[in-house]
């Protein structure tokens, strides 16, 4: 799929329109700064407090990335392991599905107690949150190679490892990337919520919670802008890698006009 200017223009115009409307409403109706600051006020606040925001960013992202890497890797490895034993698969998968519907962010206070206030506890929350989506998706992905392809591998006399690396992992990639994308959002959420439960005096979740208390709503919005851009970039990078790696998948193939 080629990027066409028109595809980008419509949402950009829409977004700019919303921002303009927002600014106009805030100025026109004299909305108090405490309820809703104007976009221009938020931007000036953002520029003004770059050092603080940068420190918050570094603190939070540390936990996000560490937890994301460990959680996704663990989910994938466990998926490959239980893939060999159908018994575990039948036992673990319903549980995995159940757990992914549970409010796992709730483990945040427990992790803060176990691992302290610093980023390690945030990473731990992220590990727990990202593990199950990856497990469930990867198991489904590993099962997605068709019987025809598997038979072909068998006629080639391929070993288990060869079938895994040459057929089943590649065919699982779309599922794995799906989990990676879901997890990129979950990881940010997990880290920020964990910071609501206790953190050193730095971090995006901490900043939001304290500045709300001090009624510095423009600072809250500035932090949210940083969090939003970080989250979108994170997602975007994963989606970009996905497009490079799974270019062969049906959803990226060009449609005949």
């Amino acid at each position: 799929m080629k990027f066409r200017a028109a595809n980008l223009a419509a949402p950009t115009l829409f977004g700019l329109g919303v921002l303009l409307l927002w600014e106009a409403i805030v100025r026109g109706f004299n909305v108090p700064r405490i309820i809703l600051p104007a976009p221009s006020a938020i931007i000036s606040r953002l520029v003004y407090s770059v050092p603080t925001l940068a420190a918050d960013f570094a603190q939070t992202v540390q936990g996000v990335l560490a937890g994301y890497a460990i959680g996704c890797a663990a989910g994938l490895i466990v998926a490959i392991l239980i893939d060999r034993t159908p018994f575990l698969q039948r036992g673990l998968l319903p549980l995995g599905n159940l757990v992914s519907a549970l409010p796992i962010v709730g483990v945040a206070p427990i992790m803060v107690m176990w691992f302290g206030f610093d980023w390690q506890s945030k990473a731990a929350v992220v590990v727990v949150m990202t593990f199950f989506p990856m497990l469930v998706n990867a198991v489904a992905g590993l099962a997605s190679a068709g019987p025809m392809e598997r038979d072909l591998m068998k006629t080639y006399g391929a070993t288990y490892g060869q079938t895994l690396t040459k057929l089943r992992l590649p065919s699982a990639l779309p599922f794995i990337f799906n989990a990676l994308k879901i997890n990129s959002t979950l990881a940010m959420i997990g880290a920020i919520v964990a910071e609501f439960f206790g953190t050193p005096v730095v971090g995006m979740g901490f900043r939001i919670n304290t500045e709300v208390g001090r009624m510095n709503i423009d600072m809250v919005w500035a932090t949210i802008v940083v969090a939003a851009v970080t989250g979108s970039l994170f997602y975007g990078v994963v989606a970009l890698i996905e497009r490079q790696v799974t270019f062969w998948h049906a959803s990226y193939r060009q449609r005949p006009a």
Binding site: F14, V212, S232
Partner: peptide, 19 residues
């Protein structure tokens, strides 16, 4: 609108909760 709906989810929405 659709790109924004998708983008709204890449935002850690929970960050908005206190506000």
């Amino acid at each position: 609108l659709m790109p924004w709906i998708v983008a709204s989810q890449t935002i850690p929405i929970i960050a908005l909760a206190p506000m």
